[in-house]
Amino acid sequence: MNELDFRPKTKGVPARLIRVGQVVMESYEHPCKVVEINDNPVSKYRIISARYVWQRDSEPPWRLGTFHPEALLERAI
């Protein structure tokens, strides 16, 4: 099994630039992989769903949050 990096180097990125497949930090030592993004055409907010990097693909994703397009998320680099 590959060793997981729970504290990857990160960079603050606006939510509008986050894409499916990228790793973002939910909180300290909790990296998660973005699996779905839904943009609300009325409010312009993004609903991002993810799985922790240690979860299996068969496990259901959970809602990371609803973000303003300019809200900064810590993305792994």
Score class of each variant (00 low, 15 high):
residue 18 I to C: 00
residue 64 L to G: 04
residue 25 M to L: 15
residue 52 Y to E: 08
residue 71 A to C: 09
residue 30 H to A: 14
residue 13 V to E: 02
residue 64 L to N: 04
residue 23 V to C: 06
residue 44 K to W: 02
residue 60 P to F: 08
residue 64 L to C: 07
residue 30 H to C: 15
residue 69 P to W: 11
residue 23 V to A: 02
residue 56 R to T: 10
residue 45 Y to I: 09
residue 22 Q to S: 12
residue 16 R to F: 06
residue 1 M to E: 05
residue 21 G to D: 11
residue 15 A to V: 07
residue 70 E to K: 09
residue 6 F to T: 03
residue 50 A to R: 03
residue 4 L to Y: 04
residue 71 A to L: 07
residue 32 C to P: 02
residue 4 L to N: 01
residue 25 M to H: 04
residue 70 E to V: 09
residue 69 P to E: 13
residue 21 G to M: 13
residue 65 G to C: 06
residue 27 S to I: 02
residue 74 E to N: 10
residue 75 R to T: 10
residue 42 V to F: 04
residue 37 I to G: 07
residue 14 P to L: 03
residue 6 F to M: 10
residue 28 Y to W: 08
residue 1 M to S: 07
residue 60 P to G: 10
residue 39 D to E: 15
residue 43 S to V: 11
residue 61 P to A: 14
residue 23 V to K: 02
residue 29 E to V: 01
residue 55 Q to N: 12
residue 31 P to F: 00
residue 57 D to G: 07
residue 48 I to E: 01
residue 55 Q to M: 15
residue 67 F to Q: 06
residue 42 V to A: 09
residue 19 R to M: 06
residue 4 L to S: 00
residue 22 Q to N: 13
residue 7 R to W: 02
residue 8 P to A: 01
residue 49 S to L: 08
residue 8 P to N: 01
residue 35 V to A: 01
residue 29 E to L: 08
residue 2 N to F: 01
residue 3 E to C: 01
residue 24 V to K: 00
residue 16 R to W: 03
residue 50 A to T: 15
residue 13 V to T: 14
residue 15 A to Y: 03
residue 42 V to I: 11
residue 24 V to L: 06
residue 61 P to G: 10
residue 17 L to Y: 15
residue 51 R to I: 05
residue 35 V to D: 00
residue 35 V to T: 15
residue 59 E to K: 10
residue 7 R to C: 07
residue 30 H to T: 10
residue 6 F to D: 03
residue 73 L to A: 09
residue 58 S to W: 09
residue 56 R to P: 00
residue 15 A to C: 07
residue 34 V to E: 00
residue 30 H to R: 14
residue 23 V to E: 02
residue 35 V to L: 03
residue 68 H to D: 15
residue 8 P to V: 00
residue 32 C to E: 02
residue 77 I to F: 01
residue 37 I to P: 05
residue 72 L to Y: 10
residue 57 D to P: 03
residue 30 H to V: 09
residue 68 H to Y: 15
residue 73 L to D: 03
residue 21 G to K: 12
residue 32 C to N: 04
residue 33 K to C: 11
residue 43 S to G: 11
residue 42 V to Q: 08
residue 54 W to M: 09
residue 53 V to R: 00
residue 43 S to Y: 08
residue 59 E to A: 13
residue 77 I to K: 04
residue 31 P to A: 04
residue 55 Q to I: 11
residue 59 E to V: 11
residue 11 K to C: 11
residue 22 Q to H: 13
residue 77 I to E: 10
residue 55 Q to G: 11
residue 61 P to T: 14
residue 19 R to C: 06
residue 62 W to V: 06
residue 28 Y to T: 10
residue 46 R to M: 08
residue 8 P to K: 00
